[in-house]
Nucleic acid binder design. Structure first.
Length: 223
DNA sequence: GTCCAGGGCCTAC
DNA sequence: GTAGGCCATGGA
């Protein structure tokens, strides 16, 4: 079977197993942007608490966050962890948007995805996954988001070498899949669910819905 | 008590 | 250029 078919088939299998994930709830695209930073290496439940605190403060907009006192921001987002780093990251993102568009997301519509990605990556604290999460989930750009689970699944089943980097994984998925925002969104969500359940640092492969398509994982990962 | 979560940066070899 | 340390809260 061609790899395109395998990867497409894997999505169908995951969808059947887990159901549509309806990922990344958020009242506004800006809230999704903020969440992308807050969720770095952090359980989403904790992020929700931080976002709720920002919402209660009426601060879920670029202007509010751009000018908020840093210590106040730290207090509000504390439940999301790494609050000293994340407060600065969120504020840099907010200030970038204010300078870029006056604080609105609409004016970004005409900006090429590659240019936006470069601008986001230039912000300290915004790496590839955070930038791509913003592009895909907040700005609806067809960019595949790679995370640690994505790499684990792909490498353990021998689809790519362990040396493969973020861009290798991203380009591979984008070559394997049709260029569709809705598919990219849910596929990433499905891979996260798969990873959480079956593909942690210590694999628990019993019942894994990916095995039928991808085969048994390489022995070196099954110790 | 231990593990881990929807990363990214900085520093040392 | 890459391995290792660091950031921090909260739930299982």
């Amino acid at each position: 079977m061609a790899l395109n078919d395998t990867i497409a088939g894997l999505y169908e299998a995951l969808l059947a197993a887990f159901g549509y994930r309806d990922w990344w709830p958020g009242e506004t695209p800006f809230e999704v942007m903020v969440g992308a930073v807050l969720t770095q290496r952090t359980n989403w439940k904790n992020v929700e608490k931080a976002i709720a605190a920002l919402a209660a403060e009426g601060a879920l907009d670029a202007h509010s966050l751009a000018q908020m006192d840093l210590e106040r921001l730290q207090t509000l987002i504390r439940p999301a962890g790494y609050y000293r780093q994340k407060s600065a990251r969120v504020q840099r993102l907010a200030r970038w948007l204010v300078e870029r568009t006056g604080g609105d997301l609409k004016p970004l519509d005409g900006v090429p995805t590659d240019l936006l990605r470069a601008e986001l990556l230039a912000l300290r604290g915004i790496g590839p996954e955070t930038a791509d999460s913003i592009l895909l989930y907040a700005l609806e750009r067809p960019v595949f988001v790679v995370d640690t689970y994505t790499k684990r699944v792909v490498v353990r089943h021998g689809l790519l070498e362990p040396e493969a980097g973020y861009n290798d994984l991203q380009e591979s998925f984008q070559s394997w899949l049709p260029d569709r925002v809705d598919l990219y969104k849910d596929y990433h969500a499905q891979l996260v669910e798969l990873g959480k359940r079956y593909c942690r640092t210590r694999p628990r492969c019993e019942g894994c819905p990916a095995r039928a398509l991808l085969g048994e994982p390489l022995a070196e990962y099954c110790a």
